[in-house]
Design a protein around this nucleic acid. Structure first.
Lengths: 205, 205, 205, 205
DNA sequence: TATGAATGAGCCTTCATTCAT
DNA sequence: AATGAATGAAGGCTCATTCAT
């Protein structure tokens, strides 16, 4: 992003131009995919000119990169909120798992983009996003490992595999979830958390 | 696809032109995505001309559609093989779950395409693929419901939700799996099947 | 250039598409410069579409490169014709010098392009053109050195400096020559050759 | 140029903004050509903003025009210094010829620009520059004609042709000269002056 | 069955310039 | 004297597809 992009712009308008562009791009990328969305469509929907867009963003790619940045920032913040409490590890994991589902549904556009547009980023940016994502996963994994150490969770499942397993399910939400389905976001979150917990419960024996 | 496409062509060459095109397209679509792969690249890699491709396929879109068709056919066949045995439902589910993981890894290109290219199909074909996919999921779901009826699996998790949960994890394999990882495809399959079973195990009580 | 470009195309039309493009581009590049000439203008003047141009040439740059190739080929051929006769070196040099002036005037567009568009070529192609040009200069320089060895020309002027001196004057023709001037191309050629000879004549002594 | 541009500005800084812009533009135009240099690059390299540039100069074109003005002013001054002495015409011509070479090399960026960017000026300004250049050439030609009148130089070569011949070589310096070559600027200047004189020496007879 | 020239619409990006402040 | 957001036109290039052969 260009340096100018971040600061507040001409107070008085509730939405700055770069912010509006980001919002519009998020929606369009989710709807029809990055490659199928033209810069022309983005600026038209945002009500600005192409020149304005390129004043704030280096490229279409950069726009996507900023979206990834926002998503990762938001998700990391939320996870931290649930993972860092004083509650028992079991409860913290359930809360975090349920919340990531709820927020993935609340921001379904983000969820769809995350899954589908990684390959459209240029290699450098892709690496950066993957690295940040890895840190997020590691934070989540730490919760599982903590439970494994305390004996609450079974230890014959590699924690990182469980993380990939669970987040596969989460990312996939954008594929099938519809707001008019039988279950609310909250209910789905609780079910998913429960499925995760079930997988981690030590065998009966 | 044009009518001529399916039959055997000019015996003597082990790979017919349409078959080669499909194979090459599968690889390229997985590597760089549908939109980033040009028809020119496909035909060049397959060693034929554009005219030849358009002789066998109606469009680039059609090429992708045929790939989806093949993937679904293969997956359905495999599922049927494991779901229709005489074994106890628990064992049948484990076998099917493990196998879909192993074969998803064995055909990682297919897995990547499935996840990422659905949106690139035109609406009609997309509907057709989704319908076929639904049938596949339903077959899988039937296994779970069978276990729920027999009391082997807990009933407080909607079977269709569990299916979406599990296949999210499966589709996501293409995102993180690398052949040089610590676990073999078989091991991952067993772990995944085990995680699924764990989720379905009735609560301690 | 793409491979297809060179061969004869659909006999019957006297000018093939790539040939027409090259001719038109030569004129336009000379008139307004490479950077000021758009691909759109070139194809419009040639009566073809952009797609057709990109079917035969890799880029606008490639078009320029092919023009350089043609110019160098033609100039080298002509030089060889005059430099390789049995005549005394003095006469051969005069003939070659006079001819390069006459042909530079006859193809004034080429002359203008040569001087002005080298920097527009991408580095690799620029190197290739410079190398070819160097070979041409060396052939010319060999004539001067031959005369210096026989004692006909003065030896206190480095032959390569004389070559650069003379060709500076030749390249500059495109800058000031107009067909309605007082002197014919032939006369200018003779004058230039005479000036060159004068410079090489041993001092009075 | 806007009226404000010329006077001294905010003493204390050794280089005024317009002066810095001109210097930077000269370097960049020489390096990559006028059309390939963006206003953005110029102002960035000069450490000012676009607004500042447009405060001092009417356009990018105007920047180039001012550079041409400076070059012509400097060259004319130098020529006058050598042409107006009391020395014999032969010596004055040698001194002027040698000096123009030395100063063309000392200001190689100017030399490159002069040759290559004339076409980028708008027609009016181009005419003005050409007219000024013509006056310069005429001053130089007058020296030759003076020598022809006195019988020191041969008269069968039109003086204006000789001028174009010689300045072709001079302008071409930017094309091949490198500071690490075998000859110093001074040596090249002497050789060029000598070649010019040789061309003008009356035939042996 | 296959060629490959040609199309035409669309894509991302650049850029000189303006103008309110 | 200077800023920097915004414009709008143009630029080079790509690409799926068609069609005469």
């Amino acid at each position: 992003m260009n340096e100018q992009g971040s600061g507040p712009v001409s107070a008085g308008q509730e939405e700055t131009v770069p912010r509006r562009l980001l919002a519009v791009a998020t929606r369009l990328f989710a709807e029809r995919g990055f490659d199928r969305t033209s810069v022309q469509e983005i600026v038209a929907a945002a009500g600005v000119t192409k020149g304005a867009m390129y004043h704030y963003f280096d490229s279409k790619d950069d726009l996507l990169y900023e979206i990834y940045g926002r998503i990762l920032r938001e998700q990391t913040e939320r996870l931290e909120k649930f993972a860092a409490t004083e509650a028992p590890v079991r409860e913290r994991l359930v809360a975090a798992a349920s919340d990531v589902v709820v927020s993935s549904i609340a921001n379904l556009d983000d969820t769809k983009i995350f899954l589908q547009s990684m390959h459209q980023l240029n290699p450098d940016k892709q690496r950066a996003v993957r690295a940040e994502r890895r840190r997020y996963h590691e934070r989540f994994r730490a919760l599982i490992e903590e439970g494994q150490r305390t004996g609450e969770f079974r230890t014959d499942q590699p924690a990182d595999l469980v993380v990939d397993y669970f987040f596969g399910a989460v990312h996939h939400l954008g594929f099938w979830y519809h707001s008019d389905g039988a279950l609310s976001a909250r209910q789905i979150g609780d079910h998913f958390a429960d499925l995760l917990l079930g997988s981690l419960r030590p065998s009966a024996a």
